[in-house]
Write a protein that binds this DNA or RNA. Structure first.
Length: 198
DNA sequence: GCTAGGCAGGAACCCCTCCTCCCCT
């Protein structure tokens, strides 16, 4: 089981490019010793300071109205960094999507950053089923794990993060039971410096 | 499944380069 704390998180953005696009939603849930803490969550809309492309509204259900009046990304990332504390982050395809987005957003806002450890949950899926012969998208992973949540909205960070947390919990248990401790790479990404350490 | 960009990993070939695929919104 996990030794320390994990913060499972998910971003919704205006597109796929960390440099050209912006974060519009962040959601996270904490896991302690392998167990999800349902009451210990983080959520915020982010005002991207621009119109949300229609495709993204269609894809995520997030509208311009939703982000109107929301805090800007600098403010949300500072709060998120405080929430994360010393935990290790986990996101699906985080190494190539979520973490570069966090780093690029800090850079755009000229925020002082700290190094934050993170895992990519894709690696758990690769280890458990084998990289070839299986697809490893979140939908495919959830389907193979028989994780179904009736009242959860996919492509909304709040919904995706709950589903991902359940998937991580289950995958970790199953890998541990069948293959021993997961051999999952630990990376380091960026989040704003914590208050009081500047 | 459709747009966008980036990249890890494999192949071929000799250690860097090219190619292809994946996954995220």
């Amino acid at each position: 089981m996990f030794e320390g704390e994990l913060v499972i998180f998910d971003l919704e953005t205006t597109g796929l490019s960390p440099h050209a696009d912006d974060i519009i939603q962040i959601a996270a849930v904490r896991m302690v010793k392998g167990l999800i803490c349902p009451a210990d969550t983080f959520f915020s809309y982010v005002d991207p300071g621009r119109r949300i492309p229609p495709f993204i509204t269609q894809y995520t259900g997030i509208t311009n109205w939703d982000v109107q009046g929301a805090p800007d990304v600098g403010s949300v990332l500072r709060s998120f960094s405080e929430y994360v504390g010393n935990a290790t982050l986990v996101a699906h395809n985080g190494h190539r999507f979520d973490m570069p987005f966090l780093a690029a957003s800090c850079h755009k806002k000229s925020l002082s950053v700290r190094a934050v450890p993170y895992h990519d949950s894709l690696a758990l899926s690769w280890q458990f089923w084998g990289r070839r012969g299986f697809r490893h998208g979140l939908d495919q992973v959830l389907s193979r794990l028989n994780i179904v949540e009736a009242n959860v909205r996919r492509h909304d960070a709040r919904g995706d993060v709950i589903l991902l947390a359940k998937a991580v919990e289950k995958l970790w248990e199953q890998i541990l039971a069948t293959q021993g401790p997961p051999q999952i790479k630990l990376y380091h990404g960026s989040l704003p410096m914590l208050a009081g350490t500047l």
